[in-house]
Every structure is written in C-alpha cells, then in structure tokens.
Design a protein around this nucleic acid. Sequence first.
RNA 1: GCCCCCGUAGCUCAGUGGAUAGAGCAACCGCCUUCUAAGCGGUUGGCCACAGGUUCGAGUCCUGUCGGGGGCGCCA
Length: 691
Amino acid sequence: MAKGIPSLTLIRDSLAETISTQIRQLQESGVLPQGTVRHPEIQDTKSAEHGDFATNVAMVSAKGLGVNPREMGEKIAAALLNLPQFRQVEVAGPGFINMFVDQAWLAGHMVLVLQAGTEFGRTETAAPQRINVEFVSVNPNGPITIGSGRGAAYGSTLCNVLAAAGNTVHREYYINDGVNSEQMRLFAESVRCLLLGNAVPENGYKGDYVMEVAETVRRMFSQGFHPLIAYSEKVLSEGPHPVLARHLESHRRLQNLIETHGTEGAISHADLGDLKLLAETLMTEAQSAALSAFGVKFDTWFSEQTLHDSGQVQSEIDTLEKAQVADTQSYRTQLKLAKGGKIEEVLQEQQAKDEDDADGVEPTLWLRSTKFGDDMDRVLRRRDGRLTYISSDVAYHWDKFNRPPNADKLITILGPDHHGYIGRLHAVVAALLVAEGMVKAESTGEPLGDIDAKLYSTPEERDTCHAALKLAREKLEVQIYQLVRFMKDGKPAPMRKRDGNIYALIDLMKEIGEAAKPNGTEEEKLEVGKDVARFFYLMRSHDTTFDFDLDLAARQSDENPVFYVQYAHARICSVISKAKESGFQADSISEDLASRLTHPAELALIKKICDLPWEVQRCAQDYGVHRLATYAIELARTYHAFYDQCRVIQPEQPELTHARLALCEGVKIALRSVFGLLGISAPERMESRAS
RNA sequence: GCCCCCGUAGCUCAGUGGAUAGAGCAACCGCCUUCUAAGCGGUUGGCCACAGGUUCGAGUCCUGUCGGGGGCGCCA
C-alpha cells in the first residue's frame, strides 16, 4: 500500500495552517476577540495584482467575532508579513487577504515533488475509509455499450482517486446471473433459437453478437466439455469455488447429452438453464475483455447466483421477516408524495384474490420498504414462489460489507435509467440494519400521527426505521451518472440499433484507434482508442448529460484535447533525453534549485504542479473526478507556455538548466500521476501529424 | 402527478458563496535557422433561461415559472 505524502507539505494546506495559527495567536494576545474562526480557504487569484493566493477568512469570520472584516484582515496581514513565506500581504476589497508568497519558498516545494516521485498525488487522510465501489454491472446478455462506457470510465477513475486520497478501495462488478432473471431467460432462449434454426422470440435478442455467442456455443458442443470439466475438477480439488462447481455440474450434464444424443441432439435436448450458463459466461468473458482493454480492472466479479446457491438470499429474507420489515399480508402500501418528498397520503391496496390460480400459489412476500422512505413496498417473492431481483440485493448488500473486510461504506454507480432504484436500495440496507440489530434509535417521544400510524405500529418502530434510513444513506452512496448522447455526422448515434445490434465500447475504441493510428498495431490502436474515449467521458461532470462527438474523437488533430495533454508529456520526455545527450540529468535535486526558478512562467508551473494532491483530495470528497481532466489540460497548458518562454537546455548556464530540468521532471511526475488516475497512457513520443 | 439532471460565448462544456464569468472548437491576426508548431501569443464573441428570496457578496444556495433530457414494473 502506497504511503502518500503528509498533506501539510501541500502549499494550500500549509498556508491555511499558518493563517489559522496566526489568528489563534492574535486571539490569545487579545488583538482579535475570542470566538470561532472558520478554517481558511485558500483561493486562486484571478490576476497577478491580487497576488498568488487569497483567503476570505476575515470576511467569513468577522461577523462571528463582532469585528470589521477589513480591520480583521489588516491584523492578520500584518502578522503574516513577519513570516518568511510571504513577500507581501495586502487586504483588498471587502476584506480579501491577498498573499504574495516568497518565490524561493514556493520553488522549494519542487523538492518535495521530486522526492515523492511516483507517489506524488497520493496523500494520507486523517480518517481513511474502507470502501466497496460497485460499477458497470450490466446484465451478461450483451457487450459493454458505449453508454456503460461512461460508468466504467467514471467508476474506475473514482476508485483510483479514492485510493490516492488514502482510502482502501475494493472494485466490484456484480454479475446479474440469477436463474430467476426474465431477461437472461429470454437471452438464453434467443441463443437456443439461433442454434436450432428457429425464429427468435418476439422481444428476443437479435444482434450479431447473439449469433456469435450461438456459434461459440455450437463449437463447444462439437468439441465436447471434457477439457472444461477437467479444469474445474482440478481447481475444485484445491478448494471450494461455488461458481465453478455450478459450471462443473452443468458441463457434466451437457457432456452426458453429447454422449447419448450426439452434438446436434445434445443441443436440442439441452436444458435452457445450461444454455443460459454457457451464454452468459461467454458474454461475461467478452465484457471483462472489453473492460480490461478500456483500462478497467475489478477485484471481484461477484455472481448473483452464488447468493442463492449458498442460501444467503433465503436466510436474509428470513431475518427480514423475523424483524417484521417483510411479511406476507395481502396488501401493498403506496405513498402519495407531495413536492419536496413529504408524505401526503398512505394508500393500502389490497391484492386481488385470483381464484384461477392453481395449487402451489404462495402469498406474495413484501419488503415493507415504505417504512424506509421508498414510495411503494417491493416484492421479495412472487406468488409463484420465485424470488425477485431485489431479494438478491438484500443478501448482496449485506455480503458486500465483507469486501474489503469490515467495509465502512458502499458506493454504487448506476446509469441514469436506474435513478428510481436509489430509494429502494436505501430501503434494503435500512431494513437489513434493523433486522440485524445494528440500529439504536433515540426515542423522539413524539406520538404517531395519522400518516405514521398507517406505516408503523409504535412510535419506537418509527424512530428506529427513521434512524435506520439515515444510517443506510451514510453506508450506501449511490452515484448516478447522466446520459451521454453520441453524435456522428452531426446526428445522434443510438446505442442500441434497430437491427438489434449494439454500439459496443470495444468497437468505439477500435474505430477511434483506426482513425488516429491507421498504421499502428491492433494493440496500439486499442490503446489510442482507450485514451481518447476515456478522456472524452471524463472531461465532463458525470452528473450532467453531454454530447460525445464521435467524429472529433476519431479525428487525430489538435482539436482533440487528449493529444494536447499527452503531447506535453512527450515534449518533456524529448527535452529530458536531449538534455541527457548534453550531459544533464533531470532527476538530480540541486541545492539551489529554488533560487534559480524565478520566471513567472516557472512559478506558475510550480503552483500548478503542487495543486495536484489538493485536486485529488477535492475529487475524493465530492466525487467530481472530471476536474482531474480539467487539471491535466491546465497543467499541459501551463507547461506549453513555459516551454515557449523558457528555454531549458542552455549549456552556458548549467545551474539554470539543471533547475529547469528538475521543473520538467516535476511536470512529468504530475502528468504521469494524473494520467494514471484517469487511466490514460503517457506516451514518450508522439509522431508528427504529417507522417 | 412525483423524482433526478440540465439551461453560461455561434457549438461543446468548465466554473470552492467572492474581485473584471473561463477553456476548447469555429472566425480573424501574428510566431518555426534554436529543446517536437499535435505548440505559443493576440482579436472578436455573454441580460450566466426568467422572476423573486437568503447574504456584506449569488452563475453558484432557496422558492416559483418556462424550456430540454431521463426515470417512476410481481423487468433487471
């Protein structure tokens, strides 16, 4: 585990701490009155005449202390001026404290950057958390689409950022392979129809990828399952493996069919469940390969069905029933909500008694999720006895807290179409917290109102449920990313096409690579495609819809910002290698480094480099990782400007050359760090566009 | 009806409650004998959808209106 650097070595944190200390001393010596002062925010200035950094601490704190903000600012400024970090401190406007920092002090931070090396950008945090992040998690019934690409890019980068900010992160993909799934049943049915030469069902799957799955399945039948069986047996002999065990049983069944009926006969006699297992496994493998090419790796690919097989689903449901947050009474509660989420009315809808139902009909098992803020109760077990998807979610969310062990928090990243799922997921976790006895509510002592009485039987139950929901919202954070509209030739390009085909992420990468690097190897093309696609997804806030210009992405030009940032890295590598030819080393830290770097373009660059850890921390706090892409562009721009104004290699000025090379090395370190977080490559060379 | 997201330059989008609202693309003008011109500098371009409110201060927070996108299954 990487250690990271203590956050106090960061410029902004260090300034904030210094200002806090000075204010405290001013209060102790009676220059400023006692009272709470907010932690100073260190802001950028918009023009050089306002100095290097500014803080509004006087403006936001003056009122509480009962003093004039400008006067307070003057007193703080006077105190700061005595410190070596500052060459000038001024109060401006309504009470801004504008700080002009000492250039050598500023440049001295470069030493810290160079010492941190590849660790630069990582920081320690006072309260590290153990976090499970689940993302992508699409059904194994098709390739990863360009739509899911956003979730993949966002989720993987968020994980990188959370880890860089000092947390322990577990990356997880949930495979929706439950045997009860209607969609997966239909997918398997479609594959079977293709295998048997029958027409695909009305709402079935028709894309070319389904045909490919069917062809692969046919090949597996003709080759037989012996190798797979042998492999599973070997692995299972070394220890338990629930998923493989299920596969082994299925493969044995299919092998028996082949031996009795021959290849074609086996296909037509095969159980739909066995075909489904083959089809979804192939699809999952394809998804995994595409995501891997996209730079996304998971610690766990978690199979939903294992929760059923192990009995965890049933046992968690029993626990919920015991705790009376789930029951089989024949009504469903629905909430009518007014604007602002206030409950206007509680409706209890009796279930129709269907006399036509045959034997074996069980009463519906309801999760009383309306006790936990959901707008309607949810079905856990259908009347035909089959469990719903949400029933697996109950066991799944409980199980997820084991990855990493004793997880503090779960983050689930979902697409815009799953927005309506947030409420019931929180209800699921809240119900679990109640049922597992994890909630201790303080009684509010308030009696049950009319509306409450329809939801809860006692005030204590209500208070417990409310407390559980509050805790659930802390334990499970759902992040929704918004829709992407893909534009081609100025027109929207649909993710799912009429002919049943899907615009797959892997195809997007290939297309971009083909256009950007027509003479490259397949691997190089995929890498370019990955870089461009990831950067495009990550440039915009995940929380807003945006247009993905496929033509621009495919164009290999200066219009494409990813090449702009990568070019900065390639330029630096070129300078450093040229310098080496002249006998200069970039990674040596000279003692007088700080005093040599005085040019405005150099100082701007130092400030920008040193901002990276701070940017990472901010992103980890509010999950707005798109700012890292903005940061990369800004850093590249600052470097390009420096490059234009400050010649690095000057043999007649070896000290300056060394200092500037160290600066280049610092930019390189920062760029590589941010590229790593964004999941894009750092090319050492970029060929001229002409070639 | 309810929920979520959005409305900022011609286009695509940034913008910690702070000072004169930014970038890329598009348009125009400059800069390669010198470390990669996939670069740099400059010009043009704005009732931050609208109306109230909170605040010393609002593009940012709150309420409402209008407009756009998405979601509200015993599907997952």
